[in-house]
């Protein structure tokens, strides 16, 4: 019995020169068929993504650096406090001094566009997965594939469908970055305490009222952790995206490697790291507000303005 199977498998796997299941041919044929028949559809998708991306990029490139730093500082102060504000401004100033300001603005706009796309697509999918075991079972293997499939494998079909440039860059970044957001949205909603869910139902909420009033607010820290993960993964795709002619920090790395210019590659790499650290701290602070007993409007620049106004009112009365 056993020797017979062994001989058969030897003949099958080593003796045969062609594959018995021609997966490669099938996929090539499928991609070709989609490209010839549905390229118009993908070109259509290209348009809104391109519009958003170009809008953000043009804005960042137009924005005087001093204003950009000021706004960044205010946002960081509001969500994370003064330390985070000074830290992120110093980090971005460092990037500018390295001569990578324009590139980092381009990369930032690509990351923001990809993450917005992740939220627009990933949040509803995560909610759907949390509400139905069937949807969750359907989505899970797809997410596994998206996270483990090497990016180079889907780089080629994406280029065939979308061409080269920024938009396909956003698409490959999206494929890589969206799974954690879907997963964490799903987990976050499922982990809302049964008593809160029961209380909501017991007072007669509809599924939608419960979702927006109870489940999403209570799942928000987990969902924001998902957004944070998406941002990190999006940044790590920047270098790969540069292979399909996406400009920015990734292109500096790519060019540096091509020319064996260690310095150029390092500047690009450092820029990515700095952006990653700043964005990570900022989104983490959004997900976990400091436990100082203050509400959001008593904190940061908004709190400072409010207390200033209050003081003026008090002194006007007096």
């Amino acid at each position: 019995m056993t020797p017979w199977i062994s001989d058969f498998l030897n003949w099958l796997f080593r003796g045969q020169s062609t594959e018995l299941i021609p997966v490669a041919d099938w996929i090539a044929a499928l991609v070709n068929w989609v490209v010839t028949n549905f390229r118009w559809l993908f070109q259509l998708i290209r348009w809104p993504i391109g519009a958003v991306l170009n809008g953000i990029e043009d804005f960042f490139l137009w924005l005087p650096p001093i204003l950009f730093l000021g706004i960044l500082g205010l946002i960081a102060w509001q969500f994370g406090g003064r330390r985070l504000a000074w830290g992120s401004m110093a980090a971005l100033i460092f990037v500018g001094l390295m001569g990578a300001w324009r590139e980092s603005m381009t990369t930032l706009s690509l990351v923001i566009t990809a993450v917005v796309l992740c939220i627009v697509v990933g949040l509803p999918l995560g909610i759907a997965a949390a509400r139905s075991h069937r949807v969750e079972g359907l989505i899970r293997p797809i997410l596994d594939a998206m996270q483990t499939l090497p990016a180079f494998v889907y780089l080629v079909p994406v280029v065939m469908l979308f061409g080269t440039g920024k938009v396909p860059g956003v698409i490959v970044t999206f494929i890589f970055a969206v799974p954690p957001l879907i997963r964490l949205t799903n987990i976050g909603i499922r982990q809302v305490s049964t008593e809160a869910v029961e209380a909501s139902l017991a007072f007669g909420s509809t599924p939608n009222q419960m979702l927006w009033d109870v489940q999403i607010p209570l799942a928000m820290p987990t969902i924001l952790a998902g957004v944070n993960q998406s941002i990190m993964l999006a940044l790590s795709m920047v270098v790969i995206a540069s292979l399909i002619a996406v400009e920015g920090l990734g292109q500096m790395v790519n060019r540096g490697i091509g020319r064996l210019d260690v310095g150029l590659a390092a500047v690009g790499g450092l820029g990515i790291v700095v952006l990653a650290v700043v964005l990570d701290r900022l989104t983490q602070a959004m997900g976990n507000p400091p436990k100082d007993g203050l509400t959001w409007n008593e904190r940061g620049p908004i709190g400072a303005i409010r207390s200033l106004l209050n003081r003026r009112q008090v002194s006007a009365k007096a």
């Binding site: 008593e195 809160a196 209380a199 017991a202 007072f203 007669g204 909420s205 209570l218």
Partner: peptide, 21 residues
């Protein structure tokens, strides 16, 4: 059923079941 829960039956829970947010 929602109408019943909104107008006729209310509930108090062991671990309070308050909405922390």
């Amino acid at each position: 059923l929602r109408e019943l829960r909104r107008t006729k039956i209310s509930m108090v829970f062991q671990r309070f079941g308050l909405f922390p947010h």
